[in-house]
Deep mutational scan, measured.
Amino acid sequence: KKKIKIYIENENGEKKTIEIEVEGDIDEIAKELAKKYNVKIVKIEP
């Protein structure tokens, strides 16, 4: 498992940072999160 930080922006332009532990393809997981929460991924840090 890797701990990563995902910087997101919602439709109101509010920026947030999510810190999660992931296993597998980080890009795939980030895309799923973006779709699920309707946010834009700004940056992903390993």
Rank of each mutant, 00 (worst) to 15 (best):
L33F: 14
K15T: 15
I8F: 15
I29M: 08
I4G: 02
D27F: 13
K2I: 13
E45T: 07
G13H: 05
K35F: 07
E32A: 14
E23D: 12
Y37R: 02
I20Q: 02
I26G: 04
P46G: 09
E14Y: 12
V42P: 00
E11V: 11
E14N: 07
D25C: 06
K5T: 12
I8S: 02
E28Q: 12
I6A: 03
K40F: 10
K40Q: 07
V42G: 01
I8R: 00
K40S: 08
D27G: 09
I18G: 00
A30E: 03
E9T: 07
K3P: 05
I44Y: 06
N12C: 13
A30S: 05
E23T: 11
K5A: 05
I8Q: 00
G24M: 03
G13C: 05
Y37M: 11
E11A: 13
K3A: 07
K35Q: 08
E19C: 11
G13D: 02
I44F: 05
P46W: 15
Y7I: 09
K1N: 06
Y7N: 02
V39Y: 15
N10L: 15
K40V: 11
K43I: 10
I6N: 00
L33H: 01
E23R: 08
N38P: 02
K35V: 05
I4R: 03
P46Y: 15
D25Y: 04
K15D: 05
V42T: 06
K43D: 05
L33T: 01
I41H: 02
K43Q: 07
I26Y: 08
Y7V: 09
P46D: 12
E19G: 01
I26M: 06
I29S: 04
A30L: 15
Y7D: 03
E14L: 10
G24D: 04
I20F: 08
E45G: 04
I41P: 00
E23K: 07
P46E: 14
E9H: 06
Y7S: 05
E32R: 14
K36F: 11
A34R: 08
I29G: 01
G13S: 03
E11M: 12
N10A: 12
K35H: 05
E28T: 11
E9P: 01
V39G: 14
E32Q: 12
E14G: 07
L33V: 05
I8V: 13
L33N: 00
L33E: 00
E11I: 10
E28C: 11
E45D: 04
D27L: 13
K35Y: 07
Y37I: 03
V22H: 07
A30W: 08
E19D: 07
I4N: 01
K1R: 13
E21R: 05
K36M: 09
K1D: 02
K36P: 00
K2S: 09
Y37A: 03
K15L: 14
K40R: 08
E9V: 14
K16C: 15
I20M: 14
E23H: 10
E45N: 03
I18M: 10
E21V: 08
K2L: 15
K2F: 15
E14H: 09
D27W: 15
E45M: 08
E11T: 10
K35I: 09
I29C: 10
I18E: 01
E21W: 15
I18Y: 14
K1Y: 14
K15Y: 13
I6C: 02
I41A: 02
V42S: 03
K35D: 04
E11H: 12
I41V: 07
I41S: 02
G24A: 05
I44V: 08
D25V: 04
N12R: 12
K31P: 01
I29V: 09
K1I: 12
T17S: 07
A34I: 07
K36D: 02
V39D: 01
K35R: 14
K43R: 12
G24F: 03
V22Q: 05
K15S: 12
E11N: 11
L33S: 00
E32S: 10
N12F: 13
E11D: 10
E21H: 07
I26T: 04
A34K: 07
D25R: 05
V22I: 11
K3C: 10
E21Y: 14
I29R: 05
V42D: 04
I29Q: 04
V42F: 05
K5V: 12
E28P: 04
K31H: 08
N12K: 12
K43V: 08
E14C: 13
I6Y: 05
I41L: 05
Y7T: 14
K2R: 14
E11G: 11
E9W: 08
I26H: 04
D27K: 06
A34V: 06
E11P: 11
E21D: 10
V22K: 02
I44A: 02
I26A: 06
I8D: 00
K31M: 09
I44Q: 01
I20N: 00
A30K: 04
G13N: 04
A30I: 15
K3I: 10
V39L: 08
I26C: 05
V39A: 14
G24Y: 03
I8P: 00
P46V: 15
V39E: 01
I4H: 07
V22N: 05
E23M: 11
I44E: 02
G24T: 03
N10K: 13
A30T: 07
I6W: 03
I8M: 14
I26N: 02
D27H: 10
K1C: 12
I4T: 03
A34E: 08
E19N: 05
I4Q: 01
I6Q: 00
N12V: 10
L33Y: 15
Y37V: 02
E19A: 05
E28Y: 08
Y37E: 03
G13V: 00
K3N: 06
I8T: 11
V39R: 00
V22A: 11
K15E: 11
E45I: 11
E9I: 15
E14T: 09
N10C: 14
E32M: 14
I41N: 01
K15Q: 14
K36W: 09
N38M: 06
Y37P: 02
E14K: 07
I6E: 00
Y37C: 05
K5E: 02
K2A: 11
P46I: 15
K1A: 09
E23F: 12
K5H: 05
E32V: 11
P46T: 13
G24Q: 02
E45V: 11
I18S: 00
L33G: 00
K36I: 08
K36G: 01
K31L: 12
E19V: 11
L33A: 01
K16L: 15
E21M: 11
I20S: 01
E11Q: 13
N38W: 05
D25A: 05
E19Q: 07
E11R: 13
I18A: 01
G24E: 03
N10G: 09
I18Q: 01
K31C: 09
